[in-house]
């Protein structure tokens, strides 16, 4: 059976001088999946996302995003993806509406469609009343929601989300989770990183685990859990994969 892939990399490598941040990873992200990309701090998750979204060029290896090589045809790939990067990528001195207008214009979306979609998204994210407020006056949570709205506005086929639940309150988090599930149920693909393993466990259909720039496990979440032994939570599986057990600190008896 031919499996349609939203993201596929072979030997993806990225160096910063002598430091190898991503070390030959082979990603396989099926279309229509919600792929949780996990790893400890500094494992290379954000660098991988930067390579996949065209912000960084890989030092070695190849990539295919939605069937297109993003290095050969970056504009075509960027038309079909949405990204919420770690720095949230928003103009401080634009309002929420102007931000969405900017995104609509660079994607060549006509004015009526843009207005309709922006209105829906601002309502959904509960940012309607802040639509004419400058982003510089937004809280972190509001920025995150606006960044997600900006990523969704062009109706992408593939979403890259770098820590979308960080700094988000419980209500907004629930809304975003529902939104992401709805996006996937309509055929979209999500590639997300998060340190909140409970959320990844609930949402993801597939996971990939990276540690020290190398892929240590990848596949459908059910298969990985079955392989690790019955009854293991994703947290236990994750800690086992990244070697967290060995790093248990000696008892701090002075605390």
């Amino acid at each position: 059976m031919h499996l349609e892939l939203a993201v596929q990399t072979t030997g993806l490598t990225r160096d910063f001088g002598s430091f190898r941040a991503v070390d030959g990873i082979d990603l396989v992200v099926p279309a229509g999946s919600l792929y949780g990309f996990l790893g400890p701090n500094g494992a290379g998750k954000s660098t991988t996302i930067k390579c996949l979204t065209g912000l960084l060029r890989p030092t070695a290896g190849s990539m295919m995003i939605l069937g297109t090589n993003p290095i050969a045809d970056p504009v075509s790939v960027k038309r079909r993806i949405g990204v919420v990067p770690e720095d949230l990528a928003l103009f401080d001195r634009l309002t929420a509406q102007e931000t969405l207008t900017f995104v609509a214009q660079v994607h060549g979306i006509d004015r009526a469609t843009a207005q309709h979609r922006a209105s829906d998204l601002l309502n959904l994210m509960e940012l309607k009343s802040a639509g004419t407020t400058l982003v510089t006056d937004f809280s972190h949570g509001m920025r995150k929601k606006l960044s997600l709205a900006a990523a969704l506005l062009p109706a992408p086929k593939l979403l890259f989300l770098d820590e979308p639940f960080e700094g988000i309150d419980a209500v907004a988090s629930r809304q975003i989770k529902d939104l992401l599930l709805s996006f996937v149920s309509h055929g979209g693909t999500i590639f997300l990183t998060s340190h909140i393993l409970e959320i990844v466990e609930r949402l993801s259909t597939h996971i990939g685990v990276i540690a020290g720039g190398r892929m240590v496990a990848q596949g459908p979440i059910a298969d990985l859990r079955a392989g690790a032994g019955s009854g293991k939570s994703l947290e236990e599986l994750f800690i086992g994969l990244v070697g967290g057990d060995a790093r248990t600190p000696a008892a701090l008896d002075w605390i």
């Binding site: 065209g54 912000l55 990204v83 990067p85 720095d87 928003l90 401080d92």
Partner: peptide, 10 residues
């Protein structure tokens, strides 16, 4: 950060 948005845009 707006520059990142522009660089991510098509």
């Amino acid at each position: 950060a707006g520059m990142t948005l522009a660089l991510l845009s098509p």
